[in-house]
Computed example of a mutant assay.
Amino acid sequence: MITAASNTLPDNAGYVAAAYLVFLALLVVYVGIMAYKLMRVERDVVELNRLADAERPGTGEPDTARASEEATSV
């Protein structure tokens, strides 16, 4: 009886493979978006570090000449 039921079920291997491919494509897109955002955040952190290093020691005021030179070199 169980063998008769298994013979009447449709073969959905193609749909399963398609579902896995769609999932894999979505996963690759998601990882790509996250990598792009991470690069952007790293670039912002580097810029913030440059601006923090450009401050004059002791006064807390920015050294505008040094900061402008670094901004133009990037």
Results as ranks from 00 to 15, higher is better:
Ile33Thr: 09
Pro57Leu: 12
Glu47Ser: 13
Gly60Glu: 02
Leu48Cys: 04
Leu48Ser: 09
Val41Gln: 13
Pro57His: 08
Gly60Tyr: 02
Pro62Ala: 02
Tyr36Gln: 12
Ala54Gly: 04
Glu55Thr: 02
Val46Asn: 11
Lys37Cys: 11
Glu42Thr: 07
Lys37Thr: 10
Glu55Val: 01
Val45Tyr: 07
Glu47Pro: 02
Met34Glu: 15
Thr59Lys: 03
Pro57Ala: 14
Arg43Thr: 10
Gly32Met: 09
Val45His: 05
Asn49Tyr: 07
Glu55Asp: 05
Arg40Gln: 15
Leu48Gln: 10
Ala54Pro: 02
Val45Arg: 10
Leu51Ile: 05
Ala35Glu: 11
Ala54Cys: 05
Ala52Ser: 04
Ala52Trp: 00
Glu42His: 11
Ala52Cys: 01
Val45Ala: 08
Met39Asp: 13
Lys37Leu: 15
Arg40Tyr: 14
Asn49Lys: 14
Thr59Gln: 04
Arg43Gln: 13
Leu38Asn: 12
Leu51Glu: 06
Glu42Cys: 07
Ala54Thr: 03
Val41Pro: 04
Gly58Glu: 12
Glu47Phe: 11
Gly58Ile: 05
Met39Phe: 15
Val45Glu: 06
Ala35Trp: 10
Glu42Ser: 12
Gly60His: 03
Glu55Lys: 00
Arg50Phe: 03
Glu61Trp: 07
Met39Tyr: 15
Leu48Trp: 05
Val46Glu: 15
Met34Asp: 14
Arg50Asn: 10
Thr59Tyr: 06
Thr59Met: 04
Ala54Asp: 07
Ala52Arg: 00
Glu47Ile: 10
Val45Gly: 01
Val41Asn: 09
Ala54Leu: 01
Ala52Ile: 00
Arg56Ile: 03
Tyr36Arg: 12
Val46Met: 11
Leu51Gln: 08
Asn49Glu: 14
Glu61Tyr: 11
Arg56Lys: 09
Leu38Met: 09
Ala52Gly: 00
Ala35Met: 11
Leu48Glu: 08
Val41Trp: 13
Glu55His: 06
Glu61Arg: 09
Asn49Gln: 14
Arg43Gly: 09
Asn49His: 12
Arg50Met: 11
Lys37Ala: 15
Val41Ile: 13
Pro62Lys: 00
Val46Gln: 13
Gly32Gln: 07
Ala35Asp: 09
Asn49Ser: 11
Met39His: 14
Ala52Leu: 02
Glu42Trp: 10
Val41Cys: 05
Met39Val: 10
Asn49Trp: 06
Val46Trp: 11
Arg56Glu: 06
Ala54His: 01
Gly60Gln: 01
Leu48Lys: 08
Ile33Pro: 04
Arg56Gly: 00
Glu61Asp: 12
Gly58Cys: 06
Gly60Ala: 02
Gly32Tyr: 07
Leu48Ala: 14
Arg40Cys: 13
Thr59Ala: 05
Gly58Arg: 06
Leu51Trp: 05
Pro62Thr: 01
Glu61Phe: 10
Asn49Asp: 14
Pro57Phe: 12
Glu55Ile: 00
Arg40Thr: 14
Leu51Ser: 04
Asn49Thr: 08
Ala54Lys: 00
Ile33Phe: 15
Pro57Gly: 08
Arg50Leu: 08
Pro57Tyr: 10
Gly32His: 07
Lys37Gly: 09
Gly60Val: 01
Leu51His: 03
Val45Trp: 05
Val41His: 13
Gly32Leu: 10
Ala52Glu: 03
Glu61His: 07
Val45Leu: 09
Pro62Cys: 00
Glu61Ile: 07
Glu47Asp: 15
Leu38Thr: 10
Met34Thr: 13
Gly32Pro: 07
Glu61Ala: 12
Ala54Trp: 01
Asp44Tyr: 04
